[in-house]
């Protein structure tokens, strides 16, 4: 076999390790998406708040302080206090923990369950596919928020139930996306090749095809994180799911909403801004990812 080896010796071999210049090139590539970078930075900022925020604040998020209710922002209370005299800044910081946790849990729950189901029905097809896709169609007929509202009110007001409700409402998105990808992937030749070396069909579907089907779902996962924040806050605003005195953005906005006319703007502005910025950042990252993926394909 030595002669064959000699004749292909001169084929150029690309190094599989990324070199330094290639790494810089990748960085430069990402600078073409400034909004994506902005989104990432905002999310990083939120994560820093989640990790270090509580140790930097001096007040407790739930203990009332009758001496200084509805206080204007000043040097002691940079964001002011609410009607029970609790520091708004402290509450916003603690709420970040809760809301981001909800967002990430919802996104990963719906992503993993949805992709798995989409993978199975897309690969095997048949009656199971028909049944599940009709159920998905029915769930799509409801706006996700309404569905989440119905589920939360049925299950009861706990953080856990809010997560389950919102995750359920967004699972169909992932089922549909992954199923669509699987339908094209299962006809690829490497699926046949995987079967022909003796893989059982579940291995072909889960190990060889599913990872190739996840790209659109990853984008969707980022978007769903943003929507989950909006939904969790929205539910809390309506008095469903997370209830006072828990520090949560939606709860805080709902308390502040009563004060809009009376002029205590700091009560609702800061938690409101936190919601908007977080949802905005996740959306920017999601859109940016989608642009990057399509750009890479080209």
């Amino acid at each position: 076999m030595s002669s064959t080896q000699n004749s292909i010796q001169n084929i150029e071999i690309k190094p599989s390790v990324i070199s330094r210049s290639e790494f810089l090139g990748k960085i430069r590539f990402f600078t073409r998406f400034p909004l994506f970078i902005f989104g990432i930075l905002v999310i990083l900022f939120y994560l820093l708040v989640v990790i270090f925020g509580p140790s930097l604040t001096v007040y407790d998020p739930t203990i009332p302080n009758p001496q200084y209710t509805l206080g204007q922002p000043n040097s002691d209370y940079p964001f002011g206090t609410d009607k029970f005299g609790r520091d708004i800044l402290t509450r916003v910081v603690y709420a970040t923990r809760l809301d981001l946790m909800i967002a990430l849990l919802v996104a990963s729950l719906s992503f993993s369950i949805g992709s798995l189901m989409g993978c199975i029905v897309g690969y095997y097809g048949g009656w199971l596919d028909k049944v599940i896709m009709r159920v998905v169609d029915v769930m799509f007929a409801f706006p996700a928020f309404i569905l989440a509202m119905a589920i939360t009110s049925a299950l009861g007001d706990t953080v856990q139930n809010v997560i389950i409700a919102i995750a359920t409402a967004y699972t169909p998105y992932f089922i549909r996306l992954t199923r669509g990808e699987m339908l094209t992937l299962r006809t690829r030749q490497y699926a046949d090749a995987a079967i022909s070396v003796g893989n059982p069909s579940w291995r072909v579907a889960l190990i060889h095809l599913l990872p190739n089907a996840l790209t659109p779902s990853l984008v969707q996962m980022t978007l769903v994180s943003g929507w989950a924040i909006l939904d969790a806050a929205g539910l809390a605003f309506l008095g469903l799911g997370i209830t006072p005195p828990t520090a949560e953005w939606g709860v805080m906005v709902s308390e502040g909403a009563q004060r809009i006319i009376t002029g205590e703007w700091w009560v609702w502005l800061y938690p409101g801004a936190a919601i908007v910025l977080a949802a905005f950042a996740f959306n920017l990252v999601g859109d940016g990812l989608r642009d990057i993926m399509t750009r890479e394909e080209q």
Binding site: Q189, Y190, D192, S196, V197, G198, P200, N212
Partner: peptide, 26 residues
């Protein structure tokens, strides 16, 4: 299908028309 899996790869293997399409890209 269980019996046929012991044949595939083990006893009978197949190589395909377009080799790059027959490999898992990831």
């Amino acid at each position: 299908s269980r019996e046929i899996r012991t044949i595939r790869g083990n006893k009978i293997a197949m190589i395909f028309q377009n080799p790059r399409m027959a490999l898992n890209p990831l």
